[in-house]
Simulated scan of single mutants.
Amino acid sequence: MKVRIEWIYKTKRGAEMDFFSEEVPAAQALLFAEDMERTGRLKQVTFVDRFDSSWTVKELKGYLKGIETEPHNVSVYFDGGYDRDTKSSGLGCVIYYEQNGKSYRLRRNAATTGLESNNEAEYAAMHLGLQELDLLGVHHLPVRFIGDSQVVINHLNGEWPVIEQDLTGWADRIEGKLSKLGIQAEYELVPRKMNGEADRLATQGLNGIEIQAVIELVKD
């Protein structure tokens, strides 16, 4: 989770001024706030998340402590591929997350039939990612969903209305799953070249190559 810091600074002579930071990871925000508190000049500090919810220092500490052993700082890349000739689809998702002080990457793909368009395949790929989040035990957390489908991203973030009946069903299914898991979804549209991992997984799914793997990411 990312938050911005809002604080009131007080000088020795009693003058006060409000300050606001850019969004930073919650743990980093807490570190800076505690450091500023030690100066004795910090009159008040509040953390505000992307959903405009306010957190005190105590509340943010409790939140960070509570999620240490659960998957958090989750990002989901998704992509769907569709073959018009065979009406078969390949779905791919890549999930990055942290748990117990370590970073992980989960890769998963699937092949499916019965879809009617590439847009449906894109929705199905995001739904696959949600199913994997459920299996991981991700719940009541903000999650970034990243894809190169303008249709899916703009539908789900409310920029575009969902008109097509087949896509309405997918959008409703995804919103229902998000609500069930308590996930606060954040959507990001990226160019296809920045979604290469999920795209490759979708293509491999179309070609009948099944992949399901989790690895720990070790920093150099």
Rank of each mutant, 00 (worst) to 15 (best):
G92D: 03
G62S: 11
Y187C: 02
N109H: 06
R173E: 14
K87H: 13
E186G: 08
S53A: 09
Q99L: 07
Q150C: 06
M126T: 00
S88G: 09
V152M: 10
H72Q: 04
T112N: 02
E159D: 12
H155F: 03
G176N: 15
E70V: 10
A124W: 10
S117L: 11
A110T: 01
H72D: 04
N118P: 06
G80N: 09
L60E: 09
K193D: 14
Q131R: 14
E188A: 05
S103P: 00
Y123V: 06
Q131I: 12
L189V: 09
L106Q: 02
K58H: 13
L189Q: 13
A111H: 15
T112C: 13
Q131C: 11
G158W: 14
N109D: 06
R144F: 08
P161G: 12
N157Q: 10
L130V: 11
K87W: 09
L135D: 07
G169F: 11
W170E: 03
Y63T: 05
E59K: 09
D166K: 12
P142Y: 07
K65Q: 02
D166R: 10
Q150W: 05
L91T: 01
T69K: 15
E159G: 05
E188V: 08
N157E: 07
G66C: 08
I67D: 05
V143E: 00
A121T: 03
N119L: 00
D172I: 07
Y123T: 07
Q150F: 05
N109E: 06
D134K: 11
I183M: 08
Y104L: 04
E59N: 06
D52N: 14
P191F: 03
H127F: 08
A110V: 01
L178K: 10
R105F: 01
L178V: 07
Y82K: 07
G176V: 07
L60K: 11
W170Q: 06
A110P: 00
V162M: 11
A110Y: 02
L189D: 11
I153N: 02
F78N: 03
R107D: 00
K180C: 01
D134A: 07
G114P: 10
L181G: 03
V74Y: 15
I153C: 05
S117F: 12
E70F: 14
D79E: 12
V76Y: 04
N100Y: 03
P191A: 04
P142D: 02
R84M: 08
G169P: 01
V138E: 07
I183T: 13
K65L: 02
G169S: 08
K65V: 01
R192F: 08
D166Q: 10
H127A: 04
L189R: 13
K193T: 03
E188L: 10
S149F: 00
R50G: 13
Y123R: 08
V94Q: 10
D79P: 08
T168Y: 12
M126H: 00
P161M: 08
G101E: 10
T86R: 14
L106M: 07
V162H: 09
N73Q: 11
A125S: 15
Y96S: 09
L91Q: 01
S179I: 03
E186N: 06
F78E: 03
T86C: 04
I95S: 00
